[in-house]
Simulated assay, not measured.
Amino acid sequence: MPKAYWIAHVTVTDAEAYADYTKAAPAAFQKYGARFLARGGKTEHLEGTAHPRNVVIEFDTMTQALACYHSPEYQQAKSHRAHAAFADILIVEGM
């Protein structure tokens, strides 16, 4: 079964409020076996809309990744992010 990758492109608009998201989100990621491959490091924007923060998270399966996103734990964390950042998030199945 192929792995899945949660890819987030984020622009934080309120760092103090975003901190509440970063405190709450790890519970969901840990519960679903997430492994961070990239988080906020140096980027070179080549095409499309740029966001200053980019994150890639690996999951063992697409089912796990989607369960994490839809989990009560993540949705609670997401409620903190809603007023603190703009985000484009997608989950893609690996090969």
Rank of each mutant, 00 (worst) to 15 (best):
H83Q: 12
V10Q: 08
D20L: 14
G33S: 05
L66C: 07
Q76H: 15
F59R: 01
V55Q: 01
P52E: 14
V55K: 01
D60I: 08
A24G: 03
A4T: 06
D60A: 15
K78A: 15
A84L: 06
A8K: 02
R81I: 07
A38N: 06
T61R: 03
A4C: 06
T22I: 08
F29M: 05
P52V: 06
S71Q: 04
K78M: 14
T43P: 08
H80P: 05
M1K: 09
I89Y: 09
E16F: 08
V92D: 04
G40Q: 09
A25T: 00
E73R: 09
F59K: 02
H9Y: 12
E44W: 04
V56K: 04
E16L: 10
A15G: 12
G41H: 01
H83D: 11
E47H: 08
T11L: 11
H80E: 07
T43A: 13
E16Y: 06
F86Q: 12
I7F: 12
R35W: 01
F86K: 12
F36N: 03
I7Y: 11
A87L: 14
V56S: 07
A4G: 08
I91V: 13
H9N: 13
A85Y: 11
T11R: 14
H83V: 09
A77G: 00
Y21I: 03
D14V: 10
I57S: 00
Q64K: 15
T13S: 13
E44A: 10
A84W: 02
P2D: 11
H45G: 15
Q30P: 00
L46A: 05
K23V: 08
T11P: 09
V55P: 02
V56P: 04
A17G: 04
P26F: 00
E44T: 13
Y21R: 03
A38C: 11
T63Y: 10
I7Q: 10
C68R: 03
Y69A: 09
D20M: 10
A77C: 01
A15R: 14
F59N: 02
F86R: 08
D14T: 06
R81E: 07
L46C: 06
H9M: 11
L90E: 14
R81L: 11
T43L: 13
A27R: 04
T43G: 11
P72H: 10
I57K: 01
A85C: 12
D60G: 13
A87Q: 15
I89R: 08
K23H: 03
A4S: 08
Y21S: 04
A8C: 05
A85V: 11
Y5N: 12
W6P: 09
K31N: 02
V55E: 02
P52I: 04
P2F: 08
V12T: 10
V12G: 03
Y74C: 13
